[in-house]
């Protein structure tokens, strides 16, 4: 038996059920962490609450460690997992646009779904904005299509790109994350005075 379990071990008929259950878990932990609140989320950018960094990097380290251990045992070869190709020009521009939209809108797409589900009107309006943005993107799509596909590198990993063993990069990310957590907690103390008064 190898992973992914769908479709060989588990019928593909269950795909959408698994989608709902996976989403439930994601939404549950995002809300638990306080990520249904825009004020809590954007605190990340004012350094007095680094919760976004802490949650995100703990999740990355957890999933990454699991993926690479399961891959090394042969149960889940990493080649079997869906990986988006690398297109550096559009991904640099897109990342910057995402960051700008995040600090203006207060949510990212996933957390806006959590906010909407817990009654945040700004979350619902944000989601309407997402739809408007998709329409705007569709309108400019023919113009930007060459840029979107520029600099295609195929599927590239950090360890492949730098020619390092994967385990070394996994360990480096873990060390970096732990160092980041210590640094993030220090920043929260240093910038605690920026926390808005209730």
């Amino acid at each position: 038996m190898t992973a992914p379990l769908v479709p060989e071990t588990i019928s593909a008929d269950y795909s959408l059920l698994i989608a709902v259950i996976s989403g439930c878990g994601m939404g549950f932990f995002l809300e638990r962490a306080g990520f249904g609140s825009a004020k809590k989320l954007v605190s990340q950018f004012y350094l007095h609450d680094m919760g976004v960094f802490k949650v995100m990097f703990t999740a990355i380290v957890t999933a990454m460690t699991g993926v690479f251990i399961l891959s090394s045992t042969g149960f889940m070869p990493i080649e079997n997992l869906a990986m988006v190709g690398t297109f550096l020009p559009s991904q640099i521009v897109g990342g910057l646009i995402l960051g700008i939209g995040f600090v203006i809108g207060g949510y990212c797409p996933g957390t806006s779904a959590v906010a909407s589900a817990t009654g945040k009107i700004d979350g619902i309006v944000y989601m309407a904005g997402l739809v408007a943005g998709m329409l705007a993107f569709a309108a400019i799509y023919p113009t930007v299509e060459p840029f979107l596909n520029a600099g295609s590198m195929g599927q590239v990993t950090l360890y492949g790109y730098f020619g390092l063993p994967s385990w070394l990069v996994v360990v480096a990310v873990i060390v970096m994350a732990v160092g980041g957590f210590v640094g993030a907690t220090a920043l929260e103390k240093k910038f605690a005075h920026l926390k808005p008064e209730e």
């Binding site: 994601m26 995100m56 999740a59 990355i60 999933a63 990454m64 993926v67 990493i78 997992l81 990986m83 988006v84 190709g85 690398t86 297109f87 559009s90 991904q91 521009v93 897109g94 990342g95 910057l96 646009i97 995402l98 960051g99 700008i100 939209g101 995040f102 600090v103 203006i104 809108g105 949510y107 990212c108 797409p109 996933g110 957390t111 806006s112 309006v125 944000y126 989601m127 309407a128 904005g129 997402l130 739809v131 408007a132 943005g133 998709m134 705007a136 993107f137 930007v144 979107l148 599927q155 590239v156 990993t157 950090l158 360890y159 492949g160 790109y161 994967s166 990069v169 996994v170 990310v173």
Partner: peptide, 29 residues
């Protein structure tokens, strides 16, 4: 902000969940 992030997610081929979290844990460049 939502409109901007929708456009950004299309350029980046994913948002904070699809790229940063999911792709990040696969060490995707």
């Amino acid at each position: 902000g939502g409109s901007i992030m929708a456009v950004g997610a299309q350029f980046a081929r994913g948002c904070t969940s699809g790229q940063a979290l999911s792709g990040g844990s696969l060490l995707n460049l």
